[in-house]
Write a protein that binds this DNA or RNA. Structure first.
Length: 428
RNA sequence: GUGAGUGUAGUGUAGUGGCCAGCACGAGAGUUUGUGGAACUCUUAGCGGGAGUUCGAAUCUCCUCACUCACCCCA
């Protein structure tokens, strides 16, 4: 790189430059249209929340809370945290505003920046964006399926072709504790065959062992008791129903008994959606989510079932980038360029520009430039259809030249008819 | 937090101990008088930083910083 600039974006954080704005815009637009169709209402929550909201909501011994939160102390002595995820914040809002008193279900969506202090790498940043959907007050398996369907539709609308849903059920407070015991007992018996990390995991987060990619642990994993086999009746039938609904809407899914998510609040259904390709493997989860029936109560609200999903905007966009390179990246092309020459013309140009604004005709100016040549060069680069040339002579005569940039044909028209004349020509 | 790799103008690159660190694209100005797209000319701007080895360092060593990638975990 060049001489290192004095100021740079902090590690893992990025400027979203003009050229990538259209992609973000498009993604958010598609999400909004979908959210609107499925009757989700938009909500925005603050970027900072009480630190405790996340430690309690997400879970004290999750990685996110343990080492990834940006937490700071206010003058008053409160601890605030840059939100590392949406769900806890949206749940807080749901409770705080008594939305449980409104007709259920309440469907909410939001999008914006999130912060996690991890080492950045492909598809992972310290400031990143998610689009988040949450449904409150509906316990039925249809909702789980619908959330997954919405997630898939979002990707489909953004032209993803080979997406695959991985799904699992991690039970609820009835069956999970029992299963955990079973698993721990099993793992203890095989402890010597586990990798170093997993031996530690057995103690504080045994489910995570199922996630381990160490070769050493694979055989142990393979023989481990599976959660699916030990679900209570309710969870079992819930899971079966979710799958039946997915079959119904023909969403391709893959059962992954090892899918465990890193956030403590999940119950029953958990899922992750990937692009089914090599790059997809590297980039990781595009959309992840699941049911969290205990969270509202945990955070002080009434016992309320809920289910949601969150989409990683940067990850989605990184797939779209290659595709979009083929398409035209330029924004809507402007059609008219205003070139001027001399002080008098400059003054009149300033006024003329305003008339174009009032008429809502997009136009590019070049008031800072003096030579006509460089102005026309700009007009050429901008690929406009017409250039307006206002020189000393025209300014004095109250006329203006309209140049057709394609044919090079020029007409002189009355200055006060400029906007009118351009509008007429653009209509053709 | 652990490990690996990379670091030359705005961008992409050449240059592995020694001639003013080249090239391309970009950007800006211009090639007689007020007219773009081509050509030509000029300008612009760089060895991430620091220390060391050496007569001499972009090049070797060390430190540091940054970026990238992987582990972990996740969107």
């Amino acid at each position: 790189m060049s001489k290192r600039p004095k100021f740079q974006t902090p590690t893992g954080m990025h400027d979203i430059l003009p050229e990538s704005q259209p992609l973000f815009q498009r993604t958010y637009n598609v999400a909004s249209v979908i959210a609107d169709f499925y009757n989700f209402n938009k909500i925005d929550t603050p970027i900072v929340e009480s630190a405790e909201l996340f430690s309690k909501g997400v879970g004290l011994n999750t990685d996110i809370v343990e080492k990834q939160m940006y937490t700071f102390r206010t003058k008053g002595g409160d601890y605030l945290t840059l939100r590392p995820e949406f769900t806890a914040a949206v749940v807080r809002a749901y409770i705080e505003h008594g939305m449980f008193n409104l007709p259920q279900p309440q469907k909410l969506y939001t999008y914006g920046p999130l912060f996690r202090m991890e080492r950045p790498q492909a598809g992972r940043f310290r400031q990143f964006h998610q689009i988040d959907f949450e449904v409150f007050g509906e316990a039925g398996a249809v909702i789980d399926a619908q959330i997954i369907q919405i997630s898939c539709n979002l990707l489909k609308e953004l032209k993803f072709k080979n997406i695959i849903v991985e799904i699992n059920s991690i039970g609820d407070n009835q069956c999970r504790p029992y299963y955990k015991k079973l698993l721990v007992n099993y793992l203890r018996s095989r402890e010597s065959s586990l990798c170093v990390d997993c031996r530690r995991r057995v103690k504080y987060n045994p489910l995570r062992v199922l996630d381990c990619k160490e070769e050493k642990c694979q055989p142990v994993k393979a023989q481990a008791p599976q959660l699916v086999d030990h679900l209570c009746n309710e969870c079992k039938s819930h899971f079966r129903q979710v799958l039946e609904f997915l079959d119904e809407v023909e969403i391709p899914y893959r059962l992954n008994p090892y899918l465990v998510r890193g956030l403590d609040y999940y119950t029953k259904t958990v899922f992750e959606i990937f692009e089914d390709s090599e790059q997809g493997q590297k980039q990781g989860t595009l959309i992840g989510g699941g049911r969290f029936d205990g969270l509202v109560k945990l955070l002080g609200g009434p016992d309320t079932p809920a289910c949601g999903a969150a989409a990683g905007v940067e990850r989605i966009i990184s797939f779209m980038e290659d595709r979009v390179k083929q398409e035209k990246t330029a924004g809507p092309a402007k059609k008219v360029f205003l070139a001027q020459l001399s002080e008098l013309a400059k003054r009149k140009s300033l006024k003329l520009f305003e008339e174009f604004r009032k008429a809502k005709v997009p136009i590019i100016e070049s008031l800072g430039k003096d030579s006509l040549k460089s102005q026309l060069r700009l007009a050429d680069k901008a690929e406009v259809t017409y250039a307006l040339i206002l020189g000393q002579k025209e300014a004095l005569d109250d006329t203006i030249i309209i140049r057709d940039m394609k044919t090079g044909k020029q007409d002189t028209v009355r200055f006060e008819k400029t906007v009118q004349e351009i509008q007429k020509r653009l209509k053709k």
